[in-house]
Design a binder for these strands. Structure first.
Lengths: 217, 217
DNA sequence: GGCATAATTCAACACTTGTAGAGTTCAACG
DNA sequence: CGTTGAACTCTACAAGTGTTGAATTATGCC
């Protein structure tokens, strides 16, 4: 929203991105249903019809706004590579994820995805596939787990369980005991649990092979 | 919804409970915003105006429908008492909670609360206070943690973190690797993590006392 | 029987929602 | 200058929302 008024050339449209940014903010705060086109337009200082002009439908706007500005697997790989020794790996993962989630560029997207996934089937599919396809595999790989093994997906899923619970209680529910504590402290507390899921001696479910053999996308 | 048609005496109104039950189902499936009075009325086989006649406003209906049919602290205490030996206590807690959440009487209420809390501030307050006031203390007490100690609340909160993450991925997101596994298997995998939070040697946050001294209600 | 009373429905209001198309403004280009 | 074309706004529609008050139906009590 640098300059107002019509008359820009193609490619100059900062307004388009301003709308997307406003949309991210609204989706993050109210979820898919709660974020109205009118509120998004107001937040962007723009007529509601312009939102529709650029993005067509609300679903399309959501999909566009939730497109990540990073490639998760690359960021995860880069951020976690230094501690390849696997010692303190769990804490490092917690620290990395929390820092990422609370960073300026990603907070809105992640919160929007999380808030929307709980009530919108479209968003739920996005988040589920995103986790299954981009996160679980990367975590398993970076952690050095054997691929093509049912155990890897199960272990990574348990990590997701703990990490999403952390995000839910800290960012959404804001439980004081979780929200008022530093990332470092949470990493120290939760890290070992995550590490146990990845490398510990778990009693593995018998028929895990069926789950591991799902189509990747 | 035993008998249809008007003309019942006071106290006979099974329709009132039928509406509440339909409301629970809708709130569980769509969250607070997504559950419409009209849909609730339709699910109960009743005119929308009757919903308003009985409960006044949508908020009141939500509050009434989400009132638990049990006293959580009692159920938790009773269910967890047998394993007071603290051996396998974590697994027992996971098993108890998951079984409770997936039981007929509570599934809708819990899911509705969870789904709504993520998008409705009113519901978020309900769930947060419910967890903080009824759950954390009970878990800490049953686990034999010293009361009036900042550590107790922090430990219980970490447990909540893991348990809610489990609920989110299994019941709401339905991540295959978590949803397609038996409660027993999850208890065996997650139990030890929970146990570590309760009795393990955690690096405690320094200023935890401030959090522990919040007003209870 | 008639009467009070509760249960239930009808019809409608006032508002918000996503969406659509026609119209307006303005910079760039010839 | 006039034309073009994109950025942008106005107005509006059709559907859905919570909510309301009057009307209707049936029951138990006298």
């Amino acid at each position: 929203m640098t300059r107002r008024g019509p008359g820009r050339r193609a490619g100059d449209s900062g307004t388009r991105e301003a709308i997307a940014e406003a949309a991210r903010g609204q989706f993050a705060e109210h979820g898919y249903r709660g974020a109205t086109i009118r509120a998004i337009a107001a937040a962007a200082g723009v007529d509601p019809a312009l939102v529709h002009h650029y993005y067509g439908t609300k679903e399309a706007l959501f999909a566009a706004a939730m497109r990540l500005p990073i490639v998760p697997s690359e960021v995860l790989t880069a951020a976690l590579a230094p501690s390849a020794g696997l010692d303190g790996f769990g804490a490092h993962l917690v620290r990395t994820a929390l820092t990422l989630w609370e960073s300026d560029g990603l907070r809105e997207t992640f919160l929007g995805l999380l808030r929307s996934a709980v009530t919108s089937e479209q968003a739920a599919v996005m988040l589920r596939e995103f986790i299954a396809d981009s996160i679980l595999g990367t975590v398993a790989r970076v952690a050095g787990l054997p691929a093509a093994d049912g155990q890897a997906e199960y272990r990574a899923a348990m990590v997701a369980t703990q990490m999403l619970g952390l995000a839910l209680t800290r960012l959404v529910l804001r439980l004081p005991a979780v929200a008022d504590v530093s990332i470092e402290e949470l990493a120290a507390t939760v890290g070992p649990s995550v590490e146990r899921y990845l490398t510990g001696d778990l009693a593995m479910p018998a028929r895990q092979a069926r789950i591991a053999s799902r189509r990747p996308g």
